[in-house]
Design a protein around this nucleic acid. Structure first.
Length: 351
DNA sequence: AAGCCGGGGGG
DNA sequence: CCCCCAGGCTT
């Protein structure tokens, strides 16, 4: 596979980047640890969302050792609202491994860095190219979109095997002298010019070298097959206060959706089960009084799932020991726990 | 290869 | 309503 204009393409792209690049917090450092943090936060997450999290996170954990030994609950609280919470746990596991097995020095080769928890092909290439100036590919959604247009690649980017096509394309095109700038230039171009819909081709620094633009089909690329099917689940959520005005909270299981995050008790609504009976049975409590039959009702949307939440406010009295993962807490205590956004919406009503 | 894993912004 | 976002892990 050859591309006769690659030298000009490369030059124009990096030149554009030097003039137009966004001023982002992680572009003020070359610390591999900080680049690593930014790349993990940016997985499936927009730049504007990440910026405040990134600043707060590195203020709390300025060095790799600070993060390696942070309490998980505190770590999750710092990640609260970002989503994909396993990223935080995997990041800490990877960081801890670097501290203990690599003398706190982030590996500078693809083999070793890829062995770290949470570091996949993209993140490995991003850290290696940006922090260490290694000529490594870093193929993300932006890069696939840009190069599918420039090189008229019509493979389905939803298929895992397609990534290899783009990795080879980057290896062909990459600026060996400025690999970090080259990779980031592709991402900035994808974010600012070569956007998913309505690409601003007239402002594009490499449109002369873009096959799709010259054929007038840039807006038809990339090809992506996957479609999302979203399920609905109904829950009755119990804001259950005891005599002292504390609320019943529980910690979610250590695996699966929203692992280890805290929530108000919620019972899935089935056709053939009574939610209140299940609630009383599961938590060993008696419902003394219904304060609010419908305190709050809302939908919370995930990627593949929608929770339909029906929240009630009840006064309860413990009849026996609570389950091991549940306890009564004051509002102030609740606010220190990591909770998913769905639960923060409910917590806000209590104030 | 396909499913799971959050949340938000934009068309 | 839809899609997509500086993806990775598990099965």
């Amino acid at each position: 596979m050859k591309y006769q204009y690659k030298n000009e393409f490369r030059h124009n792209l990096v030149e554009w980047f030097n003039n137009e690049k966004r001023d982002l917090p992680w572009r003020h450092t070359s610390d591999p640890y900080k680049i690593w943090v930014s790349e993990v936060m940016l997985q499936q997450t927009r730049v504007d969302t990440v910026i405040p999290y990134y600043n707060r996170f590195l203020d709390k954990y300025p060095t790799i050792q600070d993060l390696a030994y942070a309490p998980e609950e505190e770590l999750l609280k710092m990640w609260e609202g970002l989503g994909y919470y396993s990223r935080a746990r995997n990041l800490q596991a990877g960081v801890k491994e670097v501290v203990e097995k690599y003398n706190s020095v982030v590996p500078d080769n693809r083999h070793d860095i890829s062995s770290l928890k949470g570091v996949g092909p993209y993140t490995a290439g991003a850290i290696l190219s940006i922090a260490y100036q290694k000529a490594e590919h870093a193929v993300d959604g932006n890069v696939m979109r840009v190069l599918s247009r420039v090189l008229l690649i019509e493979e389905d980017i939803a298929l895992p095997k397609t990534r290899k096509v783009f990795e080879e394309a980057v290896e062909m095109l990459i600026d060996e002298k400025h690999p970090g700038d080259f990779n980031q230039a592709l991402m900035d171009l994808g974010a600012m010019i070569c956007t998913p819909t309505s690409p601003k081709c007239l402002l594009c620094p490499v449109r002369d070298y873009c096959i799709a633009f010259n054929e007038g089909i840039a807006d038809q690329l990339p090809i992506k097959s996957k479609k999302t099917k979203t399920k609905k689940v109904q829950f009755k959520v119990y804001l259950a206060a005891d005599q002292k005005g504390r609320y019943l909270l529980e910690k979610r299981p250590s695996e699966g959706l929203l692992a280890n995050m805290w929530q108000f008790p919620m019972i899935e609504i089935n056709e053939n089960s009574m939610s209140d009976e299940t609630f009383k049975h599961n938590y060993n409590v008696e419902i003394k009084e219904y304060i609010e039959e419908q305190l709050l009702k809302f939908k919370h949307v995930f990627s593949h799932l929608t929770w339909e939440m029906d929240c009630v406010y009840v006064l309860v009295e413990p009849k026996n020991d609570l389950p091991g993962d549940a306890l009564f807490l004051t509002i102030e205590e609740i606010k220190t726990l990591p909770m998913p956004v769905s639960m923060l919406k409910i917590l806000n009503v209590l104030n």
